[in-house]
Design a protein around this nucleic acid. Structure first.
Lengths: 129, 129
DNA sequence: TTATCACTTGGAGTACACTCCAAGTCAAGC
DNA sequence: GCTTGACTTGGAGTGTACTCCAAGTGATAA
């Protein structure tokens, strides 16, 4: 697959795909004799993984490290597990914070909805705004 | 309360507090005759709200707009509700993506755990890495 | 009264993650 | 052979959100 095809398939710009490869977020992509990138299944799997991880905000740096470890073979299995476990912990924490914010938003939207009818904003417990 | 006290209370740097006020993410804070900030309950409530929203990644711009609307009085209730509803929608979407990534991480960590015992990495469905 | 110290402002600098650009190369169609 | 267009590289530019700094001011302690 060409970079344009992969770009469409995963909805990532060609620039982003080249950037990801350049910084080592995915392993080097095979090239045709002309030097043009020719993505195989393996490259696509890496891109899909990178996209998934990035969409959840996993930092680029952690993914670069993971990619480097993966290219070093089976002696890095434990290190890779540790790395992912660490990121999972951070992700959990972020999701907890988002959940709290979501509940806060629900509460506020509810108050605003009531106010649209009654004209009265009645913030409950805290001195909210 | 002084900026230092508020900074400690909410674990935000004094620079961040001044920055938030400067860009209008919170309304202007009252000053002593000397010009030094003196945070009251209302200001603290705004800071707590800003911190909560920012911790979930709600963009600064949306919060600035919300703050501006809140200062204009009750005619902006509907606009504020719309704004928060929009951000809630985005937050939901982000959380869904994180949930997917979380499951992916769980799967991968599980495979790595098994590999630590068996020495064999067996990626299932997809050509995963 | 003089030094200290927390505070003030406006503006510059930093980190992260892209995103864009210029200059050049290569394969294919006219 | 020449043009077109997608690709290549290295490097510069952008947006978001802080974070730091220099120069100055005012209140308190010695």
């Amino acid at each position: 697959m060409t970079i344009t095809e992969v770009s469409k398939k995963y909805d990532l710009s060609a620039d982003t795909l080249r950037y990801y490869e350049r910084i080592g977020l995915i392993p080097p992509v095979k090239r045709a004799k002309s030097g043009v990138r020719d993505y195989d299944e393996g490259s696509c799997a890496w891109i899909e993984l990178a996209k998934c991880m990035r969409s959840a905000g996993i930092p680029i740096e952690a993914l670069i490290e993971y990619c480097a470890l993966a290219q070093q073979g089976d002696e890095t299995i434990s290190a890779r597990k540790e790395l992912l476990t660490e990121e999972r912990k951070k992700l959990h924490k972020k999701m907890d914070e988002m959940q709290k914010t979501l509940e806060r938003l629900n509460y506020k939207i509810d108050i605003y909805e009531k106010a649209e009818v009654t004209g009265i904003l009645s913030w409950d417990k805290e001195k909210d705004v």
